[in-house]
Design a protein around this nucleic acid. Structure first.
Lengths: 209, 209
DNA sequence: AAGAAAGTTGACGGGCCGTCACGGCTGCGC
DNA sequence: GCGCAGCCGTGACGGCCCGTCAACTTTCTT
């Protein structure tokens, strides 16, 4: 085994041309997919539309994703992957349950507004709404449920079924989030106040039975 | 103009063969679509799959619906059309705001459990969730918002933004509904208690700011 | 340098899409 | 009853998208 020029480049860059190309292609597909989904909607988009948005050939697409659904999930996963740590931090830094909910909700709406503004939100007004449940999004759900369960265990939150509570909180946040996004510009703070209060009042009353 | 045998049949039945056939075809398509959607999922289903589930030719489909999306919406519309009067009745018969919410939520979960059990629920575990916003479903949304707005106007409900409140209530009910449906059998009463209390507590706290 | 491995390409068979010219059936007037 | 006009079901058709694959190019290894 000799040390070649390529080896030097590799050790400097940390990866060979092959790896770089793979990463670049994958990214190109994801970027094109983001644009295509937001323009044509999930239903209207085709795999061909996506690869036409890149320099690649149709066959190449299938080296990276099995279907348009899988690309969509990769995009959703991406969002969830960025959002989860934020949620986790909110949990760890919270001084009380109220604080936790407020911070988490605020983080969600901020995230939502950013995604929406960057045009990357893969939703279209026409056609059925589409939501996916990727592993990573399930992880967000679990993060919410665990955060809630922990608060209950610590006694700082009322005792309620964590599954129902997590579902209810996510439902409120999602629907209210859509209402918020209809405004221009979105009033994140108002939405946060409403939703956080709603959840806090809800959990309290649901527990009081 | 003579009175023929056909005329008699027509006047007795209220419609001729033509009308009957049209209604029957439309119904056949809807029935097949319901089955196909629940088996293959919205994404997996094709217009061809649907017409293959009938005795009709492919072209005939397009005499009744423009696309698979339109059939889906017709099905959703159907559900909404049956649900709305129930909601309206809940509003009109309610003795107080608590009663209204409780009754409406209970009606929704009952409806959901029925739809689910009859296998007609066009949802599949695989693939992205899909929800549509047909005129009739928007009408349900408006029914909720108006019910809420009326309660606020009457002073029996706290003052909050009806849009946010309606969205929040629908979100809670939808998500909690899915949690409920994961149980076998679904515990409608428990779900109703949780969701109704959650909404009532939420609206109270959200208004108190 | 040269072979091996990995990745890219675009053409291909198969299937679905939405349309449309055709023909049978319905309803209407006589 | 009869015959015609129009409605509507039919299925074949051109066009597009799907996922695959054998041939080719690029990268890596020795």
């Amino acid at each position: 085994m000799t040390v070649s020029a390529t080896d030097i480049v590799e050790s400097e860059a940390g990866e060979g041309r092959r790896e770089k190309s793979k990463a670049a292609n994958r990214q190109a597909i994801l970027t094109a997919a983001r644009r295509v989904f937001s323009q044509l909607g999930y239903d209207g988009a085709t795999v061909r539309d996506i690869i036409r948005g890149t320099e690649l050939a149709s066959g190449t697409f299938y080296n990276y994703f099995k279907s348009k659904e899988e690309v969509f999930e990769a995009l959703a996963d991406d969002g969830a992957r960025r959002f989860r740590p934020v949620l986790r931090a909110a949990r760890e830094n919270a001084t009380c349950f109220e604080d936790y909910i407020y911070t988490a909700v605020h983080a969600y709406f901020t995230f939502l507004a950013e995604e929406h503004q960057s045009g990357g939100h893969p939703l279209k007004d026409r056609g059925p709404h589409v939501r996916s449940s990727t592993p990573e999004m399930l992880a967000v759900y679990e993060e919410v449920r665990d955060g809630v369960a922990e608060a209950i265990a610590k006694g700082v939150a009322p005792k309620v079924d964590p599954d129902y509570l997590a579902a209810a909180s996510i439902g409120v946040a999602q629907e209210a989030g859509e209402v918020m996004l209809r405004q221009t510009p979105p009033d994140i703070d108002a939405a946060t106040r409403f939703v956080a209060d709603f959840i806090l009042g809800g959990v309290q009353k649901a527990a009081s039975r």
